[in-house]
Amino acid sequence: MLVRRNLIFVLMSLEVMLNAAGLAFVVAGARWHQADGQVVFLFILAMAGAEVAVGLALVRQIYARFRSLDADALSEMRG
């Protein structure tokens, strides 16, 4: 996420991270042979969905205003 400047890539990297966290939970749940890991993964999934929806809507707005998807272009709150 730190490397790519395109906002889409940033969001994709975010998804990967969430997925990885969910994977860890599920593995833990399978280790102890309990359902809790999968439950938590479900919650993560729900959260990821909401976040992607809002995030992509934001990306569309940004593109409409700034005409670019450069994460570094969105640096008006500086100094």
Partner: peptide, 17 residues
Amino acid sequence: LASILLLAGLVGAYHLG
């Protein structure tokens, strides 16, 4: 709570879109 979150996401995405 997850369902509320999804609702918020829905409303937000609609508005922002």
